[in-house]
Design a protein around this nucleic acid. Sequence first.
DNA 1: TTGTGTGATAGTCATTTTTAATCAATTTAG
DNA 2: CTAAATTGATTAAAAATGACTATCACACAA
Lengths: 312, 312
Amino acid sequence: MTITQLYYVLAVAEHQNFTKAAEKCFVTQPTLSMQIQKLEDELDIQIFDRSKKPIELTEVGKKIVTQARNIVNESYRIQDIVDQQKGFIGGEFKLGIIPTIMPTLLPMFLKTFIKKHPKVKLKIEELTTEEIMSRIKEGHLDAAIAATPLEDENIKERPLYYEPFVSYIPKNHRLYGQKTIATTDLEIDDMLLLEDGHCFRDGVINLCKIFKNHVDDKFQLESGSIETLIKLSNEGLGMTLLPYLHTLDINEKEKNNLHYFNEPPPAREVSLIYHKSELKMQIIEALQDVIAGIVRGAIAFQDVKIISPLPK
Amino acid sequence: MTITQLYYVLAVAEHQNFTKAAEKCFVTQPTLSMQIQKLEDELDIQIFDRSKKPIELTEVGKKIVTQARNIVNESYRIQDIVDQQKGFIGGEFKLGIIPTIMPTLLPMFLKTFIKKHPKVKLKIEELTTEEIMSRIKEGHLDAAIAATPLEDENIKERPLYYEPFVSYIPKNHRLYGQKTIATTDLEIDDMLLLEDGHCFRDGVINLCKIFKNHVDDKFQLESGSIETLIKLSNEGLGMTLLPYLHTLDINEKEKNNLHYFNEPPPAREVSLIYHKSELKMQIIEALQDVIAGIVRGAIAFQDVKIISPLPK
DNA sequence: TTGTGTGATAGTCATTTTTAATCAATTTAG
DNA sequence: CTAAATTGATTAAAAATGACTATCACACAA
């Protein structure tokens, strides 16, 4: 049994197709077939049910794949140990970022990070929290930036900053006259929300629920981006909540519609998250350093009330 | 990088000698040298410091060995999954037993187990708790029978039975007249103990300490076996404590010297212990079944007071 | 039927792994 | 101090392994 064989098994299990898996492994299909057959022979058990189309894992196959993923990931750690020893910070690094953080945070730290660590090939993807979590567990993502706490024992979190919620209230709104907003003022019914799947949406709903036990889950208007929310709000369709960093780059006129919360303002915790196996910790720590350094200047809130990002 | 290479590294790390390691791996010494060199080249780092005699691990080498042990052990688990699927209970199984349990328990279950599971090649070794724990962690022992709780997060425990302590008191002893003994009657000073390293010794000391804060650690007489303790006690050199199962095969005359404790009697918890990675669980469970079945008839105590086997 | 997509098989070749034999450097014993 | 023994590295030849190309066999769809 070799690590390569296990790696091939993982590829086939993932793509449910020998040919595609072979491409991903940069070998030809017969090579893959042979190696997997050899492993099956050695263990004297079928890992794949080739009669099904597309190909399926057998029951044992599933268990073997789980264990194989373990072994392959643990094997990467050897290189990791060596890198750590050499103080080498480089290689490919796949980072996920949730949509409501991506456009504001990424431009703030990306240049600095690339300049400081030119040997790291960052591959950044915009993904929802749910996608991020499953990809981290599968090893397809090295780390991610998301709202926390996630309450998942396989995922570790390192808080980067606390980002308060800011009310965006158009002129005709019943709350427009108030200088500051209390969380008790919020009514989910006249609140514009992001589409399902965004954890910021869930955060807002949780915030409204704190003082109302029951919330109708029929919302009139939902949008895929915060920019659209602002425009809809400008049209008088309701108020909305924005993450603080988003309020920094809206235009002067719209800034008048911003209403801050009473102390302590509700906020989301934004963290760098990664698999509990702590692979590529050097890069993760480098990222944390750079982001923490950048954000320190932009966000200075201390006393905040953290709102859970999880749908409940 | 291959699992074989990692296995070779482990062998050399363990034997501190290429030639011996090669023998254990059933390959020639050049094979081993080459493979390890290749791994070192690939990682571009020295794992062994060959200038030292005997050969030593470098600092990174130590980390790599730890991780390599992980990977190699995890790789065994694949075969384990297959065995489990096939319902196969067999193969080599290394079991450790502490000296104070070995002579009484082993004869009780060994025959039954071999008969029930003829494909398991049991290799049984008498070892102290300390030796057992380190060997389980290194993967040189699949399981062991010892007094628990051990409070070690790498080791899991499955209690088999609770074995009360019984006083063995010779005729001239101050406590001989008492029908039952209370733990408060015990005085460490007139107690015969096993040599250092036996956890039963530590259990007895802990028991005596429960009512006396301070105990002199100068004991006059110590012995390596419980049989010797009984003989020394017969000579009037003091009383001693025996594990219950030991009292079953002493002669009639000596049985008169046995004095049982008041309810609840102090007892030791005897468990099947194994590494948290749960390798070879089928065999471990088979062992547990057999032993539990046998012991159920011999030990019927319920309300006992468990004494820690750890030196404190 | 004829493609199309899929995985298995056969034959070949380069590479890798292993081995036996040998060497060089140390350490140990007399 | 010299001789013998031990230890790991080196070399060259053999065995094995892994991967490739080409091709086959089967299932399914147009």
